[in-house]
Amino acid sequence: MKTTQTSDWDNVSEILKHNAAAMPLGQERKIREIIGEEPWAPLQRTARHRFGKHVRANPERYGLVFARIAGSTAVYKKSAI
């Protein structure tokens, strides 16, 4: 992963934590929708995929749990964690 990818990863991670905390309990959304298009765009496809796996493996960090698959994209739900 390039250095810019690492800082982009950190940026989307912080935005996701902030935006997920503001979501109503039980609401479902895709990570891309929670973060927003502008911060999400700099991540390469492989980094996006790894970031999604990271979110799924760390529900306590983001307050999101895996809910279902919509097409080929994971949907997460705001949890009480």
Rank of each mutant, 00 (worst) to 15 (best):
K2W: 11
K2G: 14
T3P: 12
T3L: 15
Q5S: 15
T6E: 14
S7T: 14
S7G: 07
D8I: 06
D8A: 11
D8N: 13
W9E: 05
N11T: 12
V12N: 02
S13P: 07
S13H: 03
E14C: 10
I15Y: 08
L16Y: 05
L16C: 10
K17Y: 09
H18V: 15
A20P: 06
A20K: 08
A22I: 11
P24L: 13
P24I: 12
P24H: 10
P24K: 13
L25V: 12
G26A: 13
Q27A: 12
Q27P: 12
E28K: 15
E28I: 14
R29M: 15
K30T: 14
K30D: 12
I31Q: 04
I31V: 15
R32P: 07
R32E: 14
R32T: 13
R32G: 08
E33M: 12
I34D: 00
I35P: 02
G36Y: 01
E37N: 05
W40Q: 03
W40R: 03
W40K: 05
A41P: 10
P42I: 00
L43P: 00
L43G: 03
L43E: 01
T46N: 07
T46V: 10
A47Y: 01
A47N: 04
R48F: 06
R48H: 08
H49V: 11
R50A: 08
F51C: 03
F51D: 04
K53H: 13
K53E: 13
K53T: 14
K53C: 12
R56D: 06
R56M: 10
A57R: 11
N58M: 06
N58E: 01
N58Y: 00
P59Q: 02
E60P: 03
E60D: 08
E60G: 10
Y62L: 02
Y62P: 04
L64P: 00
L64T: 02
V65I: 11
V65N: 06
V65E: 08
F66Q: 01
A67N: 02
I69S: 02
I69Y: 02
I69L: 09
A70H: 06
A70R: 09
G71P: 09
S72L: 10
S72Y: 04
S72A: 10
T73Q: 09
T73C: 07
T73A: 09
V75P: 05
Y76P: 02
A80Q: 03
A80K: 08
I81P: 02
I81M: 03
